[in-house]
Design a protein around this nucleic acid. Structure first.
Lengths: 120, 120
DNA sequence: ATAAAGTATAAACCATACTATATGGTTGTT
DNA sequence: AACAACCATATAGTATGGTTTATACTTTAT
């Protein structure tokens, strides 16, 4: 698919998609058979990557962190051990964030109580 | 306490604390009895607020969102119902983020499997 | 009394993550 | 052929969340 369809599929603006591609989050490929243009084509893997980007961004990961993760995702250069290590460290970060969110939630629940009891 | 101690207590730089105060996240008070300076004093409530800011920021809330929450936290102007509504809506946002994070975690766990099975 | 450390304010500067604009070429429709 | 709709690249501008720098006054230690 071309960038317009990619944008519609992912609900991410074309400008943002180009920004991501330029940043190195994913790559489209130009059809070698067509020499008149260099329109880039994107496959389902790119769609998946963008969904990962969206989810990870939403919960506070930076593009740099997400890029790092995506690069390991389907890389041939890294050893199995290293790949697993990278992904595991991200899992730990996610756990830490979940823990922090439950703390925030507790705080908010306490706040509701305080409000109900006029202490707030 | 003065800003230096506040910084040490919270591990937030003085520059950032001033930025937050200026942004309206909290307010220090100048001692009326001392007319030679207008050094601002911060109490434990400010320390608590900063801890909330840190936690909420870490998990993807913007300063604007956090400010909104903190403003309701100890406000006299709002009705009990409105305060509860604001806090409840934040709790829902936190839940949504927790859900999203567990999805991200699932994805990462699947990724580990893929790596182990050489599919990745 | 004077140097060092602390405080306040304002303004400039910076990185991240976009968003918009300008330019120019391609494709598709009529 | 012409016109809209689409694609690519480059560059500039914007918003957020800070950091740095400059200036100046206050407090504290010696």
């Amino acid at each position: 698919m071309l960038i317009n369809e990619l944008s519609k599929r992912t609900s991410v603006s074309i400008a943002t998609l180009r920004y991501y591609e330029n940043y190195g989050m994913f790559k489209g490929v130009s059809d070698e058979k067509v020499r008149t243009n260099n329109y880039k084509h994107y496959d389902e893997l790119v769609v998946e990557k963008i969904e990962i980007i969206k989810g990870a961004k939403e919960v506070g990961f930076t593009l740099a962190e997400i890029k790092d993760l995506l690069e390991n995702w389907h890389s041939e250069q890294l050893s199995v051990e290293k790949k697993i290590a990278v992904v595991n460290s991200k899992i730990n970060e996610v756990d830490a964030k979940i823990h922090q969110l439950t703390e925030v939630k507790k705080l908010l629940a306490r706040c509701i109580e305080d409000i109900e009891n006029g202490r707030c």
